[in-house]
Design a protein around this nucleic acid. Structure first.
Lengths: 213, 213
DNA sequence: TATCTGACCATTTTGTTTAAAAGGTCAAAG
DNA sequence: CTTTGACCTTTTAAACAAAATGGTCAGATA
């Protein structure tokens, strides 16, 4: 919206636009969602969308940012309720999984566009990744200071953890043109995440000094 | 070759064909390598290739199978020289990495064809994966019986390990149209593999009973 | 003034047609 | 037993027109 002063209806309209965009984005992905479709969905003219948003990217950026913030808030809240770092990791992976399947149909970005992810999204995902990393580092540090974990380099392991989680998704969901969460595939993924988390936590708990080699 | 009885030169010719195919395959991938090019490379007519191989797939299947067997033989030999299972895992990951970058330009299969991997290759990769899995299970069992590892389910962890290795590749090498091993990217990958292996081994060595929680 | 629209533009995507190149076959020659 | 050139059928690539898309703007609406 290019005007500074806004009518009380403006926020409502923006919300309506974002919801329509989000629905389309989730169903068909970025490329297969047109401005006209969004406009028609909410009985607006296409031009009106450009009154509230500068361009298509701005709309989808807003959608993605909102979903990301939603997840971050949720996960932070969930974790704040816990005190055991091991539990925190487990909850994190569990929630991340849900997020991925429920909200993150945004992954269709990649599948629709064969190769290059839009720079716009690259930046968004990058920032999101940084937040995830920060949260994980925090958890690892809690674990270290409570003596449950023995992790020399929290940043490194947080990074590794996130790369593996991302990689397992890639690896197990054979990247298809359409991203559909077939229940059986999802179960495989859930199990892999679970097993990996167990292993990861064991790796963190492992204390060299307790072993003679 | 459709004849049962073969002239001593036949094997030589097949070898020449396979080498030409392998070179082309490594450089340009499956789709971008034509039968005519292979034939021209070795100063043969295209039709002659069909005397030795039933079709294009047969040639590339032979190439891939040969490279896979080459790797399997090498890795089995290297591992047989060791007695420490921890070392075995490390050597395995190290050799697998080399194999990936040096011989496995076959990965270009995937990059050239946007989405679906040829069924032919799917089967080959699947069989190869089974062999890798078998080898890893063997290593894990050695570790278990020597008391160094405490791994309840060897198959499961071998599978997980291989999925993660595959996933890390996907995850870190942003899948590009061309697969070029930029030294810096390779280093990132090597480091990730190293860190993961460390973590994995710790996870295997971790013994619940030694910890009171 | 704040919100919205239809007509309009430039560029990209999509369809369709055509020519070239691809994989593959075969009778016949060496 | 090998090899070939001519030939076949199917796939891919080039070229071009038609449609659709993101985006703009003067002006209507209220």
């Amino acid at each position: 919206m290019q005007q500074e002063e806004q009518n009380q209806e403006t926020h409502g309209k923006i919300e309506v636009i974002l919801q329509a965009a989000q629905r389309r984005l989730g169903l068909y992905g970025y490329e297969k969602t047109t401005m006209k479709e969004i406009a028609d969905d909410i009985s607006m003219s296409k031009a009106a969308l450009y009154y509230y948003f500068t361009d298509k990217d701005a709309i989808f950026k807003a959608v993605v940012e909102r979903e990301q913030k939603e997840f971050s808030a949720l996960i932070e809240k969930k974790i704040a309720e816990l005190d055991n770092p091991e539990e925190m990791v487990k909850v994190y992976i569990d929630q991340r999984m849900r997020y991925f399947r429920e909200f993150m149909n945004l992954s269709k970005f990649r599948s629709t566009e064969p190769e290059q992810v839009k720079p716009l999204l690259k930046e968004l995902f990058f920032r999101f990744r940084l937040e995830e990393q920060k949260l994980l580092v925090k958890i690892l540090k809690i674990g270290n200071s409570s003596g449950q974990f023995h992790c020399e380099n929290e940043e490194l392991y947080a990074d590794l953890f996130l790369n593996i989680v991302k990689g397992l998704r890639f690896s197990l969901i054979q990247q298809k043109p359409y991203i559909e969460l077939a229940p059986e595939e999802l179960e495989v993924l859930v199990n892999a995440f679970h097993d990996f988390t167990t292993l990861f936590i064991r790796g963190l708990k492992y204390n060299e000094s307790k072993y003679y080699k």
